[in-house]
Design a protein around this nucleic acid. Structure first.
Lengths: 237, 237
DNA sequence: TCAAAAGTGTTGGAATTACACCCATGA
DNA sequence: TCATGGGTGTAATTCCAACACTTTTGA
């Protein structure tokens, strides 16, 4: 759901207006983006969190994110933060929800436009250490949500992200974003199971996927100490 | 998806931090809310739009909305704008999407948190005239979308709202928000048809609704110059 | 030969679609 | 009595859920 550029305004109208315009007639809040970066590792859904090196909430876990620049779009800000704080580029990213309770940040009024991003584990190696981050790690979701001390309302953001991705999994082709370019049907099924939080029937799952027309045979196999598995590829991207 | 209040921060940590905090170290954009107020009148889906009395985009049609105050939540700001600019209170309201392209407002960087609101026609009489509004009217959606000159990216916001409500109609009980407290099954069916943009089978629709458990018999009838129709009521709200 | 994961069909029930006529009322 | 919208059932099809064993490989 990306925003399109605005239609050009009537030129005479705006030139006239802009001469006298003072942006300070309305109070301005700070605006941040926060990104829920989700991946699957070791059969579990994980989200990147960063330990805050500075107050407020020093020592607590926070989502990667930060203040937007005035010349970048919200999507660009989210991608920049993903790059700077997680070292990840070019992955699936979508706006989640905007959190704007007046006291959600003790410093001042901060409105956070939250995003969620999906990446396969092989694209997300180790988090990049920055001046702001005392530490960074992947939290198991939803398993470690309750035992962790979060900064701001970031627990809530993670919960909303989980809810969104669970709902969306059923009708949108997003599971593939959590896998490398080629994958086995068992791996795809594991993505569904881990996100949804319950087991699925193998035979029904395979028929459903193959008949959905979303994937195609990659004409390769993956070998292990067992029967080789056919590899598939998502038809999009 | 309402935002919950943030968890309380560590007090010592924040007291220390706040003494030296300068909110101006990061540039701050302006933030507005814009509300897509949808209703159904004369068998058509309509959205309230307001003709701008001042630049920028003077004379073009815009959604009700405006700058947020620093001590109100985003939801509160949207409700305030609905009250001030449409004279409507207490209706269904949900966050839609946040639009933040750098040049979407020619004055300065403005980020708009868009909402959509649903109301029955009897709750939305005439729009309230304000200093900012040269005129206000209900636009037929999607019919009049293309022939109308909009301010900012408000056409895009309307399109996203329509897309959202269409998708949501199929799994969430929102159709009732567009009807008065009691309604006939034919009226309910019309809501679905108008939003989805295509006809539905009457017999299938009725069975589906009655078996869904979402509505109950209001033990009344509506009379006209034809056979009286049973009235129903939404079980929630 | 064994362990490990891959791969494969059928059946019963539920849900969905298509489809057309009679009913009750007010004018 | 007629115009208007209200109200009703059935059959065919498709979709979904439950269920267990054989195959292929590497160690």
């Amino acid at each position: 759901m990306p925003a399109r550029p605005a239609a050009p305004p009537d030129p005479h109208d705006d030139a006239e207006f802009l001469r006298g315009y003072d942006p300070d007639i309305y109070p301005r809040p700070s605006v941040t983006v926060d990104v829920v970066l989700l991946t699957i590792r070791d059969g579990a859904l994980e989200a990147l969190v960063i330990k805050r090196a500075n107050p407020p909430y020093k020592g607590r876990w926070a989502l990667p994110g930060g203040f937007i620049a005035l010349d970048e779009s919200l999507d660009e800000a989210a991608r920049r933060k993903l790059d700077e704080e997680a070292g990840v580029r070019g992955i699936f990213l979508e706006q989640l929800y905007t959190f704007g309770e007046p006291r959600r940040d003790p410093r001042t009024r901060v409105i956070s436009v939250a995003y969620y991003a999906l990446a396969s584990a092989d694209r997300v190696r180790t988090a990049v250490p920055t001046a702001e981050a005392a530490d960074a790690r992947f939290l198991q979701i939803p398993g470690e949500l309750d035992g962790t001390h979060f900064a701001f309302d970031h627990k809530k953001i993670l919960e909303v992200a989980l809810e969104r991705i669970r709902g969306k999994l059923e009708y949108a082709p997003i599971a593939f974003q959590l896998l490398p370019a080629t994958f086995t049907l068992t791996e795809l099924q594991q993505v569904y199971q881990v996100v949804l939080g319950h087991a699925l029937d193998k035979r029904n799952f395979r028929v459903r996927m193959l008949e959905s027309g979303q994937i195609e045979d990659a004409k390769e196999v993956r070998r292990g100490s067992h029967r080789p598995a056919k590899l598939y590829r998502f038809k999009g991207r």
